[in-house]
Design a protein around this nucleic acid. Structure first.
Length: 127
RNA sequence: CAAGCAGAUCGCCUUAUCGAACCAAACUUGUUUUGGUUAGGAAAGUCCGGACACCAUAGUGCAACAUAGUGGUUAACAGCCACCAGUCGUGAGGCUAGGAAAAGUGCAACAGAAAGUAUGUACAGGUAAUGCUGUAGUGAAACCAGGUAAACUCUAUGUGGUGCAAUGUCAUGUAUACCAACGUUUGAGCGCUGCACGCGCGAUUGUUGGAGGGUAGGCAGCUAAAGUUUGCUGGCAACAGUAAACGUAGAUAAAUGAUAAGGGUCAAGACUAUAAACGUCUUGAUACAGAAUUCGGCUUAUAGAUCUGCUUUUUUU
RNA sequence: GGCCUCGUAGUUCAACUGGAUAGAAUAUCAGAUUUCGGCUCUGAUGGUUGGAGGUUCGAAUCCUCUCGAGGUCA
């Protein structure tokens, strides 16, 4: 599996996003928060993932873009390590809840922990 | 050399690895391969003015709003250029909502005799007599004229409204509440601009034809444009004309990136050194900021670097 | 992306078409009352009226720019 993150892997449907926020469950590792929901869609992939950074925490568009890019990059590089064994399809939304600009190293570390926690939680639920 | 004024330009680079969006081509027709393109001077604030779209190819009057020396420039402007005046600065230069107070209405706290229907204190002068004359005192403004129009107003000029979330279109489900044409009756009501005029549609019923509406989504609108650079000509200049070259983002939970290494540039310190300069090493800094229909301005933010012209003071030749 | 609204003591609000000291409640502090506290009474503190310019004799008020907060339009 390649480290790609193309257009079809992005979460774009407004309906799905609203459903996600209404019914989804969340996992938190500061400064990240993952909201996820088991769902179905037509594309031949396992996960649709979106990224969001609040305007409240980062006033300037440049900073918001920077944080979002870092999160996307961390997600792209790490996802294949965790999701090879998942059968069902999920919708993801990753939020940044801190209010300071992170480095890539920090983001990468938090992302690994976050995904680990998610996988653990799901497998426990299945049992 | 120092301090300063005005104008203009640039605003990190290279390599490697892993990626994103759009366009084109290929054939193996799809999680494919190859090639190309991919953020700014302010993309920002949304403060002015246009283009474009719809509402009546945008009408008349009033109201409302904006502008305000003179002339020019422009698609247009509250922008820009030139000149005049005022004001600040030793100066280069900066700043100015810079029309009208003899068309009219209003406003002026406190102080002061008196702030507009004027009136009278002290001293001096003068008279037949008297605020009749001068000075003082209060105040931003006072012997009679003024101030204030970023108070109402007047004058001149200009402005229709709404904004790409405009507008058009496609398929899915719900569903007759819909639309068009023609005929008939009546003119309630609705829309167009805040009001009036004016214009358009039009309650009911019949016939014919058909698709229409709101919600979320896709597509078009969507990037070639009052374009950029250079030269020449006209003009004091803004700018205009002309020739050549270039062909320059198009995303939509929103692309234009992430990581590593090396190198620039600047600052500080150390070493070498009489001093400056050069050189070496270390540390730090490398800004403001991210297109969202689009263009011309204005305003605001901005590490640092470069260039041009000019001013002042002192010294040397 | 477009279009609107609002910023005054720590907090909630006043200040009439520009006029002098920006006022009230509450909060804070001090004193009185009480054995001690609360309630109550008295007094004090606290504001460059979000910021910077301009008009005016004089600006919270008028004008321009700017910063911040909020709302609305499919």
């Amino acid at each position: 599996m390649k480290h790609t993150y193309s257009k079809i892997e992005k979460l774009k449907s407004k309906i799905l996003i609203e459903k996600l926020f209404d019914e989804g469950k969340s996992v938190k590792i500061f400064p990240l928060r993952l909201i996820f929901l088991e769902t179905e869609f037509n594309e031949p992939i396992k996960i649709k993932c979106g990224v969001s950074v609040a305007k409240r925490n980062f006033k300037n568009a440049v900073d918001r873009n920077r944080v979002k890019r870092l999160i996307r990059e961390a997600y792209r590089l790490n996802k294949s390590a965790y999701f090879n064994n998942i059968a069902t399809q999920y919708a993801f939304m990753i939020l940044y809840i801190g209010n300071e600009k992170p480095t890539f190293e920090q983001t990468d570390k938090s992302m690994r922990k976050l995904l680990e926690k998610f996988v653990e939680g799901v497998s426990e639920e299945k049992k």
